[in-house]
Simulated assay, not measured.
Amino acid sequence: MGRLFVAVGDSFTEGVGDWEPRLPNGVRGWADRVAKQLSKADPSWRYANLAIRSRRLDRIINEQIDAAIALKPDVISFYAGGNDILELRQDMDRFLDRYEAAVDRLASSGAQILLFTGFDIPVHPALVPFKHRNWKFNDRVRQLARKHPDTVTLVDYWAWDIYHDQRMWDIDKLHMNRAGHRYMAIRILEILGSQHQLEFQPLEDIRRLSPVQLLQRDIEWIRQWVLPMFGRRLRGITLGDSLEPRWETPIYPAKGMKKQFRRRQRAAAELLHGDAEGSVR
């Protein structure tokens, strides 16, 4: 049947920022790119992606971890906690204990586990406390990689200086853009020791902005992204509430991911059409 790669987590793993309307949930992301390259080296590779944007740790644990382990994968990527760190009231010690328990559960599966540190994203001075939380999270991730040296592989995203370049980020400043996801895929393939055909194109020159333009951009960013995000949190809703996992059932990427998505869309449309006809009768 071949080997299986399962991706677990939130928007980082779902692929937000790498927009592609011809794929599920309108995104591609580094995990899709890794799966595609693995399948080019060996067409028997299968791939599932259970990640959904805005998911917090507890829902990822409840909805994705056992489902991922049940698939008996060879590789599981696990990135969770970014949304928890941004919660206004968060007990970091309790959160990190739950995170460690999740990693222990994954490590016991026998699969190779990819764990990620969180990048030290530049933020407004008012948000600096969240950076301190991220540093504490990263310390625990590194400890867990040392705790499970035979099964856990550390992807030390925090240490990759190229992500200090704003051209690696989407307009919301929280998610990687297409270039960021492509570079992430390349680095993970290298960590896995897999051959690949991905190339990272040099970034274009930065367009220099005046101090006034920088201020205007930051104000617009806060208005369009930061305030709505915290507003959703206060209302208890998320951007992922209406979404399903992109690739819940394992696929063979070598057979064409866009082609398989189109087939899935046609099947859903035919089912909906059949239900509509039945209701008319």
Rank of each mutant, 00 (worst) to 15 (best):
R264F: 15
Q201E: 14
P250A: 09
Y79S: 13
R223I: 02
A145C: 06
I219H: 10
D165T: 08
I186W: 10
R208A: 14
F116M: 10
R3I: 00
R262D: 12
V280A: 12
V128E: 09
R133S: 07
P202M: 02
I85T: 06
G81T: 15
Q260T: 02
L215K: 15
R105I: 12
E14T: 03
G110S: 05
S109M: 05
N25Q: 04
E14Y: 01
P129T: 02
L71T: 00
A268F: 08
R208E: 12
P149G: 07
S109C: 09
G2H: 00
A7S: 13
D241W: 08
N138Y: 01
R281H: 15
A7L: 04
M176L: 15
L214R: 14
I113D: 01
A51G: 11
H148D: 05
L239T: 13
L88T: 15
G118M: 11
V141P: 00
A7F: 09
G17S: 03
N49L: 03
D205C: 02
Q197T: 12
E190W: 09
R246G: 13
S242I: 08
P228I: 03
L127D: 11
L57G: 08
G29W: 01
D139M: 07
L209M: 15
Q112T: 15
Y47I: 01
F200A: 11
M229A: 10
D18E: 05
H196P: 01
T151F: 01
W135K: 15
P24A: 06
M184F: 07
R146F: 08
E248W: 13
G231V: 02
R262Q: 10
N49W: 10
H148G: 04
L198Y: 11
A48C: 14
R98W: 06
I171R: 11
N177S: 06
V75E: 04
A31L: 06
L23N: 04
A254I: 06
R33K: 08
A70L: 05
L272C: 03
W225Q: 09
P21C: 10
Y252V: 12
H196F: 08
P149Y: 01
G81W: 05
Y157R: 08
Q90R: 12
D66F: 05
Q195T: 14
R94V: 15
M184S: 07
T249E: 09
G17E: 00
E87I: 13
Q213E: 13
R142G: 03
L127S: 15
R246K: 12
W158Q: 02
K40Q: 13
I162D: 14
P149K: 04
H124M: 07
A35M: 04
V226G: 03
L192E: 02
I76V: 11
P245Q: 07
W169P: 00
G278P: 02
P73N: 03
D74M: 10
G9D: 02
R22D: 11
L71N: 00
F78T: 15
E20W: 05
F200L: 11
T13W: 01
L106E: 11
F261H: 06
N62V: 07
Q197R: 11
R266F: 12
K136T: 13
V6I: 04
P24E: 04
Y47P: 01
G82N: 08
D66W: 04
S39N: 03
F200K: 08
S11I: 06
E220C: 02
G193P: 05
D42Y: 07
I76H: 06
G118K: 04
I186E: 09
S109Y: 08
A145D: 01
